[in-house]
Amino acid sequence: MKLVLSAVLALSAAASAATSLEASKTVTITTPSQAVAALISFQPPKGGWKVEEYANGGGADPVVAFVDGLDRIAVRVFGAPGSGYKNPASFLAGPAASTMGRKPEAIGNITVAGRRLALYKHGFPINLGDPHALSGPTMLGQEIFLILPTSGRRFIVLSYARESPAPDLERRGQKAWRAFLKTVKLAGRKT
């Protein structure tokens, strides 16, 4: 399902003026996918993954995601004025990187866009029940992510999530994620 909140982005773009895109010196109304494309290029995963795009932080934090069943590969950009996370350290300490407040686990390193970057893993709650009532046992999906700095204040979080406590026996999503990472390039950089 594609969510395009360009109107929301427009409202925030009017408020944040020329800082909405570091590569642009003029106020530009952009969609989340345009805001992401200004910083990073990549090939979408093959095989019918659906695209979602939206923004948090009143438009400051654009997201482009590819979804196939339980698997989700996402590109999130942070660090602009109004962002929920000013820098990578605040992201790593915040709810989006944690397992409901517990710090993410460092699980190794990986080379992406010519940079050697740390890989992290954390859990996130899935299958939420009625918000007003006590739900059944907590079930956690798993997300692996890395943080790719850009040349400016903004930084990009690339992630693969599986909305299931049980791993994928066939590893289909993980294979798509590894293939996706090989296509990632920072805008304006040779890697």
Binding site: V63, G94, A96, M100, F124, L128, D130
Partner: peptide
């Protein structure tokens, strides 16, 4: 879990609520 989900990604949380209860299926952003 709802609180932690909301804090992690508010827009995705709202999107997921659409298939949580009948009430949320008809709630809208601005």
């Amino acid at each position: 879990e709802h609180m932690w989900s909301y804090l992690a990604d508010p827009e995705r949380y709202h999107n997921n609520l659409v298939t949580n209860l009948p009430y949320y299926a008809t709630t809208l952003s601005l």
